[in-house]
């Protein structure tokens, strides 16, 4: 087996609140991403998927577990030592309007990572920036435009160009198209797919849109209240789901003439998590033991792990 590009073991993040209370945003996450792999992270608001994205890139420090990138443990190394690795991993945010500094032109935004990482300067820098903008389909006239002069799709293209500037091997995309209209979303998705194929990128693609994840990822992890509850090949998890939550999620997607309110209630507040399996108050199949015992993630079939008492499986080997 090749060295994974990204490896997370028992990763967790707990925030301290006032009066000694704590809230756990992410817990016990094990992930391995090989170079060029595409992992989708799905779940509803507050499930911790965005926090997990930031943990993976060490944009926020983990409070439990380890992350290593290309064989280097980055869980606790100083920011200065991390900087050369930052070149190889990049993030794309949900809202391109907020992800661009309103006072920097598109050209300056794309140039910034190149300047920081000392990759180009002077005429070479200008040529690189123009080439990157061209790669995302923006002509040279956009170089001097400010974010407020660009449409949502154009802004997201600038963000992508900026993320590509340092030729990363890993891209974390946090809901990259959810602020965009569907016709523009399709343009960006098409473009991202081409990009991954040509550059051999690995990505972690976070989305609440199951269809988009099924389209762009080979593997999917479903999160609920900070934990992965089901993980496996996208076609299996989203085509033949085993966890009751994944099933509810899929059934809730509106379809022609059909509304299925498949799970009652709403995602719980992470500050007051339910006992046992976090999903049990909303689960149509819940049994008494679901109220008391939290199920571990177990292998149900090859490459398909599920955390549910009602799905038989074997204990997963440590990564």
């Amino acid at each position: 087996m090749t060295t994974p590009l990204l490896l997370a073991q028992g990763l967790g993040k707990t925030y301290a609140l006032k009066q000694g209370r704590t809230v756990t945003a992410v817990a016990d996450v094990d992930l391995a991403l090989t170079p060029g792999a595409a992992l989708g992270l799905v779940g509803e608001s507050g499930c911790g998927k965005s926090t997990l994205a930031r943990l993976l890139l060490r944009l926020t420090p983990a409070t439990a577990g380890r992350i290593s990138f290309a064989g280097t443990d980055i869980t606790r190394i100083p920011e200065r030592a991390l900087r050369p690795l930052r070149r190889r991993m990049q993030i794309i945010h949900q809202n391109p309007s907020a992800a661009l500094d309103p006072r920097l032109t598109a050209g300056a935004a794309v140039a910034e990572p190149l300047i920081i990482q000392n990759l180009a300067r002077g005429a070479a820098l200008r040529a690189r920036v123009a080439a990157l903008l061209a790669e995302v389909g923006l002509t040279a006239e956009f170089l001097n435009r400010f974010p407020h002069e660009l449409s949502g799709g154009q802004k997201q293209r600038v963000c992508i160009a900026r993320a590509l500037a340092t030729e990363p091997e890993l891209l974390v995309l946090d809901e990259p198209t959810s602020a965009l209209d569907v016709s523009v979303q399709a343009q960006i998705l098409e473009f991202l797919e081409t990009l991954r194929a040509t550059r051999g990128l690995a990505w972690v693609f976070i989305s609440h849109n199951l269809a988009v994840v099924r389209l762009l990822c080979e593997e999917v992890a479903v999160m609920y209240l900070g934990r992965i509850v089901e993980q496996g090949p996208a076609n299996t998890v989203l085509g033949a789901p085993l966890h009751p939550y994944t099933r509810a999620l899929l059934a809730s997607v509106p379809r022609l003439g059909q509304i299925a309110a498949a799970a009652p209630g709403e995602p719980p507040n992470p500050a007051v998590p339910p006992s046992g399996c976090a999903f049990h108050p909303r689960c149509p199949l819940a049994e008494p033991r679901c109220r008391t015992d939290a199920p571990a993630l177990r292998i149900a079939a090859t490459g398909h792990a599920v955390a549910c008492h009602l799905v038989p499986g074997t204990k997963r080997a440590a990564l």
Partner: peptide
């Protein structure tokens, strides 16, 4: 708290650069 600050950090920007290039002008 703005995402563009996080974007700068993700690109490897130092604290001084973030203050000078992003926080101060805004």
């Amino acid at each position: 708290e703005e995402p563009f600050i996080e974007a700068a950090r993700a690109a490897g920007a130092s604290q001084v650069r973030i203050l000078w290039r992003h926080v101060l002008p805004n």
